[in-house]
Write a protein that binds this DNA or RNA. Structure first.
Lengths: 195, 195, 195, 195
DNA sequence: CATGAATGAGAGTTCATTCAT
DNA sequence: GATGAATGAACTCTCATTCAT
C-alpha cells in the first residue's frame, strides 16, 4: 500500500469516526461511511470490509492519540495528590462530554463483540489505568500524602466509580455537581486534606 | 381487548424478552419477534407497532416482577447490615449473570432513546435505589452498626461502583472474585466488622 | 334479510358514501369502510363483499335520491327557456361543488370498470339528460322561444360542454365566471334573447 | 449520471408508460414498474423514488413528443379552416383511441394531485390550446372564412366539448359517428361552408 | 486503484379475507 | 347475525456486496 493509500485510509477513518460519534456503532452502515467520506461505494471496500473492521481501526487510532494527553500535563514536581487530582479532572471532562465522544459506540461495540478477546481495547485501557492508580496510591502512601486502610482495593474501586458515572452519564444523565461530589468522596477516602 | 388478548400480549412480551436478551435492543426486528412467537407477520402489529414499544413494555413487566424479589427476602429481625449485605449479594448475582439478562439491551435502548424523558425506567430505578441505600445507612448509623465520615455520599457512591461493575461485566468481563472484593471494600468503608 | 338488516345496510352505504367522497374510489379499502362505520371487520362482509359492490350500491342510492330534485323545481307555467335556464343553473352548482361530491370517485370507478356494461349509471344518466334536453329544445322551437340551425345536435353538444366543464373542474379547476360564460354561450346559440 | 444512465432512465420511462397505459395511475406500484422493466427492485430506486415522480416524468416526455406532431402537419398554404379541421381530426383520433393512451392515468393523477400547482401539465396544455384556437378563429374571421356572433367564447367552448367527449369516451364510451357529428356542429357554428 | 450501477435479500407495514366463538 | 383475532400476500424501501469498466 503506497503513501497515497495510507493517506486515504486515514482520511476514511477520521471521517468514519465522526459518523460513529453521531450514530453509535450498530446503526452505522457502510453506506453512511461512503456518503460521509464522499468516496465511491466500491472504493470503501478496497480498504475495509465491514463497519466492524472500520470501527476497530478507529478505536486503535483513538487510543494512540489519547494515550499521552494525560502524561503530558504532569509537572516535574507534581505530588501524587496533584497527579490524582489531575487524573480525576480529566476523567470528569470525559464523563461530562456528550459531544464528540465515541463512548456509546464503544460500549455498543463491546456488547456485540463480546469480552475476553485479546485485543479488547477497553480492557487494556481499564487494566492499565488501574495499574497507574495503584502505583500512584502506593507512592502517595509512602510520601504520607494518602492514608487508607484498604489501599490495595482503592485503585480498582475508583475505576468502577468512574465507569459507573460514565455509563450513567450516557444513559440517564449526570450533573457536574454529582461528578464533583464523587471526586471529593474519592479524595476524602484517601484521607487527603481536601476540604 | 379481551381476556384472551391480554394473555397473548403477555405471551408475546415474554417471548420478545428472550429475543432481546439474546440480541440486545437495536438488532431486534419485528420479524425476529414474529418468528420467535410463531405468530403471523400481521398478527404482531395487532398488539405492538414497533420494537421500541415492545421493549418498553418488556422493561415495565421486568421491573414489576423484580420489584418484590428483594423485599420478600428481608427477614423480620434483619439488621441494616444484614439488609445491605443481602442487597449487595443480589446485585452481585445480577452483575455476574451473563445469561437471561436484559442489561445490554437496556443500555442500548437508552443510548438510542436519550435521557430526561419522564418515563426513564433506568433513572427511576437508580434514584429509588439510592434512596433505599441512604435510608439504610442512616438507620445503620443510628443503630451503631455503621460508621462513616461521609455517609451522605456513601449511598450514591455505592450505586456508581455497582453500575461500574455492571457495565464492566458486559464489556470487558469481570470475575466473581473482583465483585467480592468490591463488596468487601464497600462494607469496610462503612466500618462494619466484616473480616 | 330482515328490517333491521336493511337499516344497517343503508347505514353502511351512507357512511361509505362519505368515505368515497373523501378518498375517491380506488384508494378506499374495506378497512376504511369498516372503521368509518364502526362495525366489525367480519360484519361488513355479511353485507358486501368488495368496495366495488359497495360503490355500485352507493351510486344506485345516489341516483335514486337525485332524480327528482330537478323536476321538483319546475313551476307549472314554466317556459322551455325557464326550464333550460334552471337546468343549467343546477348543472353549474354541481360543476362548482368540490365538497360532498362523488364525481371523482365515479370517474375513477368507470375508468376501472369499463364502459358498455348494462348498468352503467353514468351512461344512463347522460342519455336520459340528452333526451330531456332534446325534448325541451323541440318544445322551445315550437313555441318560438328558441331558434337554431342544428337543433338536433344542440342537446348532445350541451351535454358535452357540461361534461367538459365537470372534468375540468376536477382536474385543473374552473372559475364560476367561466361556467357562466359557457352557459350564456349555450343560451345565445339557441338564439334566446339573453343579454 | 452518465450517458448510459440517461439511456436507462429513458428506457424505464418508456416501459413505465406502458404500465400506466395499462393500469392507470393509482394502481401502479413500484413493483409493477420493476417487473415490467426487468430490473432489480433496488435498481429502480436509483432513478426514481416514487410512482408519482415516474408518472410526472412520463407526462413530460409525452408532452414533448406530442407537441410537434400537430404543427408538423400544417401545410404552408393552409387556411384557418384547413388548420381547424386538421386540429379537430387530431383530437378525434385521440378521443377515439382507447389503446396506448395515458388519458385515464392523467385524469387519475390530477384527481389525486390537486390543481393549482404551477406545473399542472394538463392546465398548461388546455390553456395553450385555447389560445391557439382563439388565434385561429381570429384569423379565420379576418379572412372571411368564419363568421360567428360570439367568437371570443367559441375557442373555449370548443375545448370543453372536446374535453367532454374525451371523458365520455373513457367512461361511458363514444361512437365515432358522435364525434363526427360534434365536429360538424362546431364547424357549422363557425358558419364555414361545410356540408 | 477507483467508480458507481446493479442486484437481491430482508425489514417494515398494510389489508382483504377467513373463521372460531 | 356479529365479532375481531389471525393469517399471509403484497408493497415499499434500504443496503451490503459485487463487478464491469
Amino acid at each position: 500500500m503506497g503513501e497515497k493509500s495510507v493517506q486515504k485510509k486515514k482520511l476514511i477513518l477520521e471521517t468514519a469516526r465522526k459518523v460513529f460519534v453521531e450514530k453509535g456503532y450498530k446503526k452505522v452502515t457502510m453506506k453512511d461511511v461512503v456518503e460521509a467520506c464522499n468516496i465511491s461505494r466500491g472504493g470503501l471496500y478496497l480498504y475495509f470490509e465491514s463497519t466492524q473492521q472500520i470501527f476497530m481501526e478507529v478505536m486503535k487510532m483513538e487510543s494512540q492519540e489519547a494515550d499521552d494527553v494525560f502524561s503530558e500535563n504532569i509537572k516535574e514536581d507534581a505530588t501524587a495528590s496533584d497527579i490524582l487530582t489531575l487524573f480525576l479532572q480529566e476523567q470528569k471532562k470525559e464523563i461530562l462530554r456528550t459531544e464528540d465522544t465515541l463512548i456509546q459506540a464503544i460500549y455498543e461495540f463491546y456488547f456485540e463483540n463480546q469480552p475476553a478477546k485479546k485485543d479488547n481495547f477497553l480492557k487494556h485501557q481499564f487494566d492499565s489505568l488501574v495499574k497507574v492508580l495503584e502505583k500512584l496510591i502506593e507512592v502517595g502512601v509512602e510520601n504520607g500524602e494518602f492514608y487508607c486502610e484498604n489501599c490495595m482495593e482503592a485503585a480498582r474501586n475508583i475505576m468502577y466509580v468512574l465507569e459507573g458515572m460514565r455509563i450513567t452519564a450516557q444513559t440517564i444523565g449526570i450533573k457536574e455537581e454529582m461528578v464533583d461530589r464523587e471526586i471529593l468522596f474519592i479524595l476524602k477516602s484517601l484521607d487527603t486534606n481536601v476540604e
